[in-house]
């Protein structure tokens, strides 16, 4: 495994991708997949930054305070995410497009503010109900976050995890459940008429996606060595969305490529570091306007190419066959 990683790195190092960058690329690919699942089912949820935060905090506390191994912490954190996602999903997933987006943005903010204040909450609980008489209480460190986390995540953990996820994902997509997901996206009412339990499919996907985001949070927390609430704000939710949108949601490779490209590009273009944010916004805008299916979408490229050629050669527009 080490040999393989070394081989990959020796190829990509000249263009500016070092091992830490590769690790974040892999983490963000996992995040991209978590968003891909949601978009494939037609749910526009921005809650995954919140679940990532939950995964990161839970696991970091387990490894730091209770000396858990990374694997054990991963399992516990992912289960916690699932247990939180279920009661959130049941009421919230009744909402559709913009309303769902707004509600999940609200959820993400509440999670962030919770971790910002949880120390004070515990402190006031201890002082009022247990007469502890404490001055301060530090569990997650409020705005300063949990510091000095051990750097437990190894590159091969991420590669193995991603490969397992890809394997399960391809199996899932070909299964009855995977097809039900697509049916729900295309038309909920028709899907329900065909005997698909829409509520079950949506909630199941929401929980699966939350678990993946939580796992990414676990790995991320043990890479950055510090976990603060500000790492999981609205910006992060948008980043996660961008991975899936940029890569495209027609095939599983889309969000992975999206995560890779958006993480690696700023490093590759390090000379233009100043313009990195401008570039991110521009990419998102251009892709959604000109390549609605994302980067990994042969049909979209063909269409774009055809329309560009028409414009260059000045031929009249032909009726397009089939929809993207």
């Amino acid at each position: 495994m080490d040999f393989l990683i070394e081989a990959i790195l020796s190829v990509v190092r000249p263009i500016g991708i070092t091992e830490p960058v590769l690790q974040f690329m892999l983490v963000n690919a996992i995040l991209g997949i978590s968003m891909y699942l949601l978009l494939r089912t037609g749910m526009f949820s921005l809650a995954n930054a919140g679940f990532m935060a939950i995964g990161a905090y839970v696991s970091v506390l387990l490894t730091k305070e209770l000396d858990f191994a990374l694997g054990a912490a991963l399992v516990v954190a992912v289960i916690v995410c699932a247990l939180i996602a279920l009661p959130i999903g049941l009421p919230v997933l009744r909402l559709r497009d913009i309303y769902l987006a707004i509600a999940t943005i609200g959820f993400g903010e509440v999670v962030r503010i919770f971790f910002l204040n949880v120390d004070n909450m515990i402190l006031s609980y201890l002082n009022t109900f247990q007469d502890a008489g404490l001055r301060r209480y530090e569990l997650v460190g409020g705005g300063r976050g949990v510091r000095n986390v051990e750097r437990l995540t190894e590159t091969w953990h991420l590669i193995v995890f991603l490969i397992v996820i890809i394997f399960l994902l391809t199996r899932l997509q070909r299964s009855r459940f995977g097809r039900a997901m697509v049916a729900v996206r295309q038309d909920e009412r028709v899907a329900a008429n065909m005997g698909i339990n829409v509520v079950y499919v949506k909630n199941m996907v929401f929980v699966l996606s939350a678990m993946l985001a939580g796992a990414a949070g676990v790995f991320n927390g043990h890479l950055t060595r510090i976990v603060t609430p500000e790492m999981f704000g609205f910006d992060r939710a948008v980043d996660i969305l961008a991975y899936a949108v940029l890569g495209g949601t027609s095939v599983w490779a889309g969000p992975i490529v999206g995560g890779f490209v958006l993480t690696a590009l700023p490093e590759v273009l390090r000379r233009f570091n100043e313009y990195r944010g401008v570039f991110n916004g521009l990419v998102l805008l251009l892709v959604i306007v000109y390549l609605p299916g994302g980067l990994i979408n042969p049909q979209g490229w063909r269409k774009l190419w055809a329309s560009a050629r028409r414009r260059l050669t000045g031929q009249p527009a032909q009726p397009e066959a089939g929809g993207g």
Partner: peptide, 15 residues
Amino acid sequence: AQLISSIGAAILLVN
């Protein structure tokens, strides 16, 4: 899709 493009535009304008 329009929501996403507005997010892209927001990132662009802020930067």
